[in-house]
Design a protein around this nucleic acid. Structure first.
Length: 874
RNA sequence: GCGGACGUGGUGGAAUGGUAGACACACAGGACUUAAAAUCCUGAGUUCGAAAGAGCGUGAGGGUUCGAGUCCCUCCGUCCGCACCA
C-alpha cells in the first residue's frame, strides 16, 4: 500500500544521527581485514561549500561506502587546508581576525558537509591552522633542516614596494602587483627552500610506477621536472679581452654535436661575467638593468625580442685555439638554468638564429637534413633543429647527430684544461628548489631564530610550537609578524642572548604536503605514528581536481620521500609514493556575472531571460542589465557558486549527490545546470514507491528457498544480478555515471515486473529490492537505509556486505546475434548461447533479409564471432 | 613554439574493433482527473515512404579490416598544460 512521499530532509537527519551515534565510520587499525584509505583533497575553508564540493565528496563517498561493503577496513577522513591569504584579506577588509574568520567558515562548512551524509571519520578532523597540526610541521621542518633538505639561500623574488611583500608569479599582472598596482621589482632576498631537486631523478623515474594515475598528470609532472642530458663545457677566454681574474666561462648544452656551428656565446644578465664586464662598461650595466626589469609573465616573454649586448670579451673555441667567438649578454638566457650561459648555434636553434640575424653573426649549417644535398643546402631564417648528418664540422663530418654527440663529448671529456676535463656530461632538470618563505601572517611560523652571535639557529624542540600571536594588526600592508611589537623578540636558543625570530611563514602548500600522513594518527604527540602510518599508507584512492596536477601532487610526492629520509615514514614498497591511485575529477563550472558597477554577482542574484541571441541577464534586485562573462570553475572570488543548501533542504542530500554523479563522466568538466535536479528527486520517490509496494506485498521470504522461476520472475532476477555485477564494477572503476545508468535500467525492469502475480515473482522482487537498496547505498545512503528498514531488515545497510551475484544468472541461454552482410546489419538471430559456429552460420544464411541483401551473389566467407555477430561476405 | 586531450541526436552522455544513440533531461501524444499537480503508458537521429522497408549518419578527407565512433595518416575546430629550459 503506497502511503506517503519519502520525506528526504527529515529522514536524512535521522539516519545521520544513527550513523553518528553508532560511530560506524570510525576507523581503527585491523590487521584481519584488507585496508582501504580513501581520500578526497581537503577543502580550503573559504566560507560555504558549493556544488563542486558536493561533486568531489560524493565521488569519494561512493567509493568509500562501496569498499566498506566489499569488506575493506576503510579510512575516510576530512580536514581543512586552513592557512592562506583569503583569511588575511578578510582581516584587512573586514577587521576580523584571520583565525576567527577561518574557524567560523570551518564550522559552517563542516555543518554543510555533515548534511551530505558522508561516511567520514570525523574524529580524525584536522585543521592545518591549529597549533595541534602546525607544531608537528615545525618539527618536520627542523628534521628537514638537520638533513640538509631545508636550507636558506638568496634568491630573486617579485617584490611589491607598496605592500611590502613578496608576490608569487601568479600575483604579478602586467608587471604590477595585483593589489597595489605598483610596478613590481625583482629583489634579491634570503629565503628558505626545500631541496626538491635532490629527488628530481626519483620523482621522474617513479612516475612510471604510478599506473593508476591519469596519464595526463604523469606527463605534466614529467614535463615539469624536465630532465635533459647534455654537457657542461668550459670555454677559455681570450686574455686580452677578459675581465681581471676571469679566465673561463662554463656553458651548458644538450647539443655538443653542433659545436662547429657556434657563432657566439651568451650569458644571463645576472651572470657573474656580465657583472664583471659591467664594472668598466656603463652601457652594458644599463643593458643588464633593462633585462632584469623585464617581467617574467607570459605576455612579457612573448613580446620580448631577442636582444643582446656585446661584452667585448672573446672566447676560444674548445676544438680550435685560433677560433674566437664574441660573448654577449642576452635577455633570453636564464641565470637559473644550466650554467646561466650558452653557446649559440644559429643553424641549429631558432632563438640563436633570430639572435644571429639581428646582430649579423655567421650562420653555418652543421646538420644536413635527410634527403637534402650537402652541396646546395642552405638555411634562410629557419633553423633546422632535428637530426641528420654532420657537415662543415671537421672531425664530426659524416656522422649522424647521435654519433657526433658521442664523438664531441668523448673529445671534450678527454681534453684536459688546468687538470680538469674541458667538458663533462651533465644531467639538468627544469625543476627548481621549492621556495617556501612567505611574508605573511596566516601561515605556519618557520621555527628559526636569528642571533647576532650564532647566526641562524633552529628553535629547540621543547619550545615548539612557535605559535602565531593573536594580537597582530592588519590595518597596513606588510608582514604583521614583522611589525608586531613583541612577538619576534626572543633569546637565542644557543647562546641565550637577545635575538629575533624568523618572521616569514611557510607556503601553505607545505601544510597540504603531509596531511594525508597526519590523518593516520591525528592525535599522536609526534608528527607521525609510524605503526598507524605503515598500516594505512599509501592512500589507496585519492580524488581531487586536475588543477593540482603539478604543485600539490609533486610536493606531496617529494614530502613522502623527504619524510622517509628523516625517518618519519617507512615504505614497504620499493617506491616511496604517497598516493597509489589518483583520480582527477573534472571541474564544476558556471557562467560569471558582473554588475554594471563591475562587481561580481552570484548566479542566485541574476535572472537570465531568453535564449540564443536574445539571451540576456538582469540583476534581480535592481532590474539592471548584467554583463555575462566567461564560464569558469566555481570559485568564491568570482562568485559563480551555487550553494547546495537549497537543493539539500528541498530535495535532500541524496538527490544532490545522485544528480551530481549522473550523466557526466566524473573526469569531465561540467557546466552547472539545475535542469535535471527535479528528475533526480522524482527518481527517489519512484524507488520509495517500488520498495513500499514490494515490502507490503511480499512478506519476508528471505529464508525461503527460491521457488521454480517462471520467465517473468527470471527476468527480474537476471536483471537484478546483472545490475549488481555491473554497478559494482562501474563503481570500482569510478564510472559513476555508468553505474547510475545501469541502476535506471534495472529499476525500469523491476518496476514493470514486480507486481505481476506469482510466488516466484514475489520472491524475485523481494531479492531484487534488497539488491536495489544495496546498489543505491553508496550514492543515496539515507534513502537506502530507509528502504532497508522498510523492507524489514533490522541491521544498518551501511554495515551490510555487497552481495555476490550468481554467475549462472549473469548469462542467458539464448543470445541475440546481429547478422551483417558485407558489414551492414540486416537482421538478428536468437540462438542458443552454446550454438556451434556451423550452426550459427547455417541459421544466418537462411534468414530472408540476408538472402535478399546478397542479391544472388555467392557467399565468399562467413565470419562468426561467438555470441556477438555474424558477418556474411558476398 | 612544444606536449596532451577531446569532437556522437534538441541537451548530458553510452558503446572489451562486432546491432551507434543504452540511460537520463527536455519535448510531443495518450491514460487517470471537473481541472491541475503527481503518477503511468507511448513516441522520437535524419531523409524518402501510409506502412513494410530502404538510403544516409559519430567534425572533414583518406587508409587498415570481413567489420571502424573506437586503430593509423592528413586537415579543421574546441579545450588544457608548459613555455626564451640551451
Amino acid at each position: 500500500m503506497a502511503s506517503e512521499r519519502y520525506n528526504a530532509p527529515e529522514r536524512e537527519k535521522h539516519w545521520q544521527q544513527v550513523w553518528d551515534h553508532q560511530h560506524i565510520f570510525r576507523a581503527t587499525e585491523d590487521l584481519s581485514r584488507p585496508k582501504c584509505y580513501v581520500l578526497e583533497m581537503f577543502p580550503y575553508p573559504s566560507g560555504r561549500i558549493h556544488m563542486g564540493h558536493v561533486r568531489n565528496y560524493a565521488m569519494g563517498d561512493v567509493f568509500a561506502r562501496y569498499k566498506r561493503a566489499k569488506g575493506f577496513n576503510v579510512l575516510h577522513p576530512m580536514g581543512w587546508d586552513a592557512f592562506g591569504m583569503p583569511a588575511e584579506n578578510a582581516a584587512m577588509e573586514r577587521k576580523v581576525h584571520p583565525g576567527k574568520w577561518t574557524y567560523a567558515n570551518i564550522d559552517t562548512m563542516r555543518g554543510q558537509l555533515k548534511s551530505m551524509g558522508l561516511s567520514l571519520d570525523w574524529s580524525r578532523e584536522i585543521a592545518t591552522c591549529s597549533p595541534d597540526y602546525y607544531q608537528h610541521q615545525q618539527k618536520l621542518f627542523l628534521d628537514l633542516l638537520a638533513k640538509g633538505i631545508a636550507y636558506r639561500k638568496s634568491s630573486k623574488v617579485n617584490w611589491d614596494p607598496v605592500d611590502h611583500t613578496v608576490l608569487a608569479n601568479e600575483q604579478v599582472i602586467d608587471g604590477r602587483g595585483w593589489r597595489s598596482g605598483a610596478l613590481v621589482e625583482q629583489r634579491e632576498l634570503t629565503q628558505w627552500f626545500f631541496k626538491i631537486t635532490k629527488y628530481a631523478d626519483e620523482l621522474l623515474r617513479d612516475l612510471e610506477t604510478l599506473t593508476n594515475w591519469p596519464e595526463k598528470v604523469r606527463l605534466m609532472q614529467a614535463n615539469w621536472i624536465g630532465r635533459s642530458e647534455g654537457m657542461a663545457i668550459r670555454w677559455q677566454l681570450d686574455r686580452a679581452t677578459a675581465p681581471k681574474d676571469v679566465s673561463e666561462l662554463e656553458v651548458y648544452t644538450t647539443r655538443p654535436d653542433t659545436l662547429f656551428g657556434a657563432s657566439f656565446l651568451a650569458v644571463a644578465a645576472d651572470h657573474p661575467l656580465a657583472k664583471a664586464a659591467s664594472d668598466s662598461n656603463p652601457a652594458l650595466a644599463e643593458f643588464c638593468d633593462d633585462c632584469r626589469r623585464m617581467g617574467t609573465s607570459v605576455a612579457d616573454i612573448e613580446a620580448a625580442e631577442k636582444r643582446g649586448f656585446d661584452t667585448g670579451i672573446r672566447a676560444i673555441h674548445p676544438f680550435d685555439a685560433s677560433w674566437k667567438l664574441p660573448v654577449y649578454v642576452a635577455n633570453f638566457v636564464l641565470m637559473d638554468y644550466g650554467a646561466g650561459a650558452i653557446f649559440g648555434c644559429p643553424s641549429g636553434d631558432q632563438r640563436d638564429m633570430d639572435f644571429a640575424r639581428r646582430y649579423d653573426l655567421p650562420v653555418v649549417p652543421v646538420i644536413l637534413p635527410p634527403g637534402e644535398d650537402g652541396a646546395t643546402f642552405t638555411l634562410k631564417n629557419k633553423a633546422y633543429e632535428d637530426d641528420g648528418v654532420m657537415i662543415n664540422s671537421r672531425f664530426l663530418d659524416g656522422l649522424t647527430t647521435t654519433a657526433a654527440f658521442e664523438a664531441a663529448a668523448a673529445r671534450l671529456e678527454t681534453t684536459m684544461l688546468t687538470n680538469r676535463p674541458q667538458g663533462q656530461r651533465k644531467i639538468n632538470f627544469r625543476l627548481r628548489d621549492w621556495g617556501i618563505s612567505r611574508q605573511r601572517y596566516w601561515g605556519c611560523p618557520i621555527p628559526i631564530v636569528h642571533c647576532a652571535t650564532c647566526g641562524v639557529v633552529p628553535v629547540a624542540e621543547r619550545d615548539l610550537p612557535i605559535k602565531l600571536p593573536d594580537d597582530a594588526t592588519f590595518d597596513k600592508p606588510g608582514n604583521p609578524l614583522d611589525r608586531h611589537p613583541t612577538w619576534k623578540h626572543c633569546n637565542c636558543p644557543s647562546c641565550g642572548k637577545p635575538a629575533t625570530r624568523e618572521t616569514d611563514t611557510m607556503d601553505t602548500f607545505v601544510d597540504s604536503s603531509w596531511y594525508y600522513v597526519r590523518f593516520t594518527a591525528p592525535q599522536s604527540d609526534q608528527p607521525v605514528d609510524k605503526a598507524a602510518a605503515q598500516y594505512w599508507l599509501p592512500v589507496d584512492q585519492y580524488i581531487g581536481g586536475i588543477e593540482h596536477a603539478i604543485l600539490h601532487l609533486l610536493y606531496s610526492r617529494f614530502f613522502a620521500r623527504a619524510m622517509s629520509d628523516t625517518g618519519h615514514l617507512q615504505f614497504a614498497t620499493n617506491t616511496r609514493e604517497p598516493f597509489g591511485a589518483l583520480f582527477a575529477q573534472g571541474m564544476l563550472t558556471h557562467e560569471t556575472y558582473k554588475s554594471q558597477d563591475g562587481l561580481w554577482l552570484q548566479p542566485s542574484e541574476v535572472r537570465v531571460e531568453g535564449d540564443g541571441s536574445n539571451r540576456r541577464a538582469v540583476e534581480i534586485s535592481s532590474g539592471r542589465p548584467v554583463v555575462v562573462g566567461s564560464i569558469e570553475k566555481m570559485s568564491k572570488s568570482k562568485k559563480n557558486i551555487v550553494d547546495p543548501d537549497d537543493i539539500i533542504s528541498h530535495y535532500g542530500a541524496d538527490c544532490a549527490r545522485w544528480f551530481m554523479l549522473s550523466d557526466s563522466p566524473p573526469e569531465r568538466d561540467v557546466i552547472w545546470t539545475e535542469a535535471g535536479v527535479a528528475g533526480a528527486g522524482r527518481f527517489i520517490q519512484r524507488i520509495w514507491r517500488i520498495i513500499e509496494d514490494i515490502s507490503d506485498s511480499g512478506g519476508d521470504n528471505r529464508a525461503l528457498a527460491p521457488p521454480t522461476m517462471g520467465p517473468e520472475a527470471l527476468e527480474i532476477r537476471k536483471s537484478a544480478h546483472r545490475a549488481l555485477d555491473q554497478v559494482g564494477r562501474a563503481i570500482e572503476a569510478l564510472r559513476f555515471n555508468v553505474a547510475i545508468a545501469n541502476i535506471y535500467e534495472f529499476v525500469n525492469v523491476l518496476q514493470a515486473g514486480h507486481s505481476k502475480p506469482g510466488a516466484d515473482v514475489a520472491f524475485a522482487a523481494r531479492e531484487a529490492a534488497a539488491f536495489l537498496v544495496t546498489m543505491i547505498g553508496p550514492m543515496m545512503p539515507h534513502l537506502a537505509e530507509e528502504c532497508w528498514a522498510r523492507l524489514g531488515y533490522n541491521t544498518l545497510l551501511a554495515n551490510e556486505p555487497w552481495p555476490t551475484p550468481l554467475a549462472a544468472l549473469l548469462v542467458d541461454d539464448q543470445v541475440t546475434i546481429a547478422v551483417q552482410v558485407n558489414g551492414k546489419r540486416r537482421d538478428e538471430l536468437v540462438i542458443s548461447r552454446t550454438a556451434q559456429t556451423e550452426e550459427v552460420e547455417a541459421a544466418a544464411l537462411k534468414l530472408e533479409p540476408v538472402i535478399r541483401a546478397l542479391e544472388g551473389r555467392p557467399v565468399k566467407k562467413v565470419i562468426v564471432v561467438p555470441q556477438r555477430i555474424v558477418n556474411v561476405v558476398g
